[in-house]
Every structure is written in C-alpha cells, then in structure tokens.
C-alpha cells in the first residue's frame, strides 16, 4: 500500500505527527487515514484537514508513506515506527524517525534537529543536511541511540550521536561541534571535517576522514592504522574519564 500525503497549506505553527507512520496506516482506507488524529499547536485535528490523501494498492505487508511538498513544519514523522517505509520529498521538521525501531525513512531534503533521536533500529537516510542533535539522546537519559543506521548525504549540525550506545551514523559531509559526546558504543563516521570529537567518550568508535579542526587535549595518540583503506591516526580516550573509545582521524589541526 502506498499512501501519498500532500500538505494543503503552509503551516507556521508546527504540526506534531508521530501518528504518520506505516504501523498506523497499514490496512486503513482513505477515510480512515483522513480521520487519524494529529496535533496542530494546542488543537487536536484530523489528518484530512491538513493533508490531501491518496491511497494506492492494498498490500498490508508493505506500507509506504510518501509526503509530497514541504514538511519543514511537521514534527515527529515516523517517531516510534517499527516497519514499512516513509519517503519525504522535501525538508522535514524535528524528531523525524525519533525512537524508531524498524523500517526505513528517506528524507530527500534537509532534516531539522533531533532526527533519529533515541533510535534503536531501522534506517534513516537524509539526502540533504541534518540539523543539530542527529541521533542524539533525550535530556538526562544516559543512553542515546541504541541501534539502527543513520546516513546523511550532506552536513550535520552540532552534537551528532550524543550518548550513543550502539548503531551507526555516517555523515558524508562535515559535522559541527562535539560529535560523539559521552559515546559508549556504536560507530560514527564523518567523511568531512568536525570539531572537538569524542568528548567524554567511554567506548565505541569514531572515524573522521576529513580534518579535525580542533582536538581535545585528553586523547592519547596510539599510532597509525589502515581503516576503510585510509591510513588514519588512532587516538584513545576520552582520558578525562579513563575512556577506551577509539578515535580515528585523518588530518589533525596544523596539517
């Protein structure tokens, strides 16, 4: 089943739409989907009042949701999803794919902050840029991402993969400040540049294939190793907490 949603207007006040996920659409007809509840500001509204809905096919197994047009004011799309696929043909607002445990989300444009927050499985692909807190945790929670895969084709903002316990994040472009904060497992690859990676890192692995613009003073240089067919410098840290995380870096400041 393929469900296409087209926003009827530009929203200023954001819509909260964790109900837009294949788990919730599977086996429903057009009018049932139109009557799914969403929040627009402090009002609970029906999906049909904000989106044009088109339903094709009836296959319950494979539910695919396509959002056509601008979703940059629609938060929480795919939050908590366990299966199926969501394709967003444009930008998307915060919390896209947060807490997802299965299925796949493809964002053709940019994602705003907290995409893939606390994700435990499945795959999230952002073909544009990702905002801050990509694959991060919730305030105060000790573990962030616990599994699954996030790929960003463009750049990512600050604090990529904070408190990550498992899973993988690949950023093809550059990432902002302090990626991999308090990381205890999993793997983060940044193909471009970044700044101060690995603060409070306990375990897990980070690979920075571009340049680290600034290094923390609390990592130990261990020598060079070949990773992904690149010769990289290996560091261990963060020694502020006797961490044994591994940080592979191509170029360090001054190089």
């Amino acid at each position: 089943m393929r469900v296409t949603l087209t926003p009827k207007k530009d929203f200023k006040v954001p819509v909260e739409a964790e109900t837009i996920k294949p788990d919730n659409f599977a086996g429903k007809n057009k009018s049932e989907i139109e009557s799914i509840a969403l929040w627009h500001g402090n009002k609970e509204v029906k999906l049909g009042s904000l989106f044009d809905v088109k339903v094709e096919g009836v296959n319950k197994e494979e539910t695919k949701i396509v959002i056509e047009g601008d979703a940059s004011r629609i938060k929480r799309i795919g939050e908590g999803m366990t299966s199926g696929e969501i394709m967003i043909n444009g930008n998307v607002d915060m919390h896209c794919g947060a807490m997802m445990s299965g299925g796949k989300i493809i964002v053709k444009g940019d994602s705003d902050a907290w995409a893939g927050r606390e994700m435990i499985g499945g795959e999230l692909v952002v073909e544009g840029n990702a905002g801050n807190y990509l694959g991060a945790g919730y305030w105060g929670a000790e573990k962030g991402m616990g599994g699954g895969m996030i790929r960003v084709h463009g750049d990512a903002g600050d604090y990529v993969g904070g408190h990550m316990g498992d899973g993988e994040i690949i950023v093809k472009g550059s990432a902002g400040l302090l990626p991999g904060l308090d990381m205890s497992g999993g793997k983060i690859t940044i193909e471009g540049n970044t700044t101060l990676p690995g603060g409070e890192m306990k375990n897990g692995m980070m690979v920075i294939k571009g340049k680290v613009l600034e290094m923390l003073p609390s990592f130990r240089f261990e020598g060079e190793e070949i990773v992904d067919s690149l010769k990289l410098k290996k560091f261990t840290g963060d020694l502020v907490r006797r961490g044994s995380g591994t940080l592979y870096v191509n170029l360090i400041p001054g190089e």
């Binding site: 603060g199 923390l216 003073p217 609390s218 990592f219 130990r220 240089f221 963060d238 020694l239 502020v240 907490r241 006797r242």
Partner: peptide
C-alpha cells in the same frame, strides 16, 4: 578537559 585529564593522572597527553 585538560584539567580533568591532569587530575586523572594523564598529564602526559
């Protein structure tokens, strides 16, 4: 971070 590394006995790095 440098102060904490020193406190943790890792001033060499």
């Amino acid at each position: 971070s440098a102060l904490r590394a020193i406190l943790a006995g890792e001033e060499n790095v």
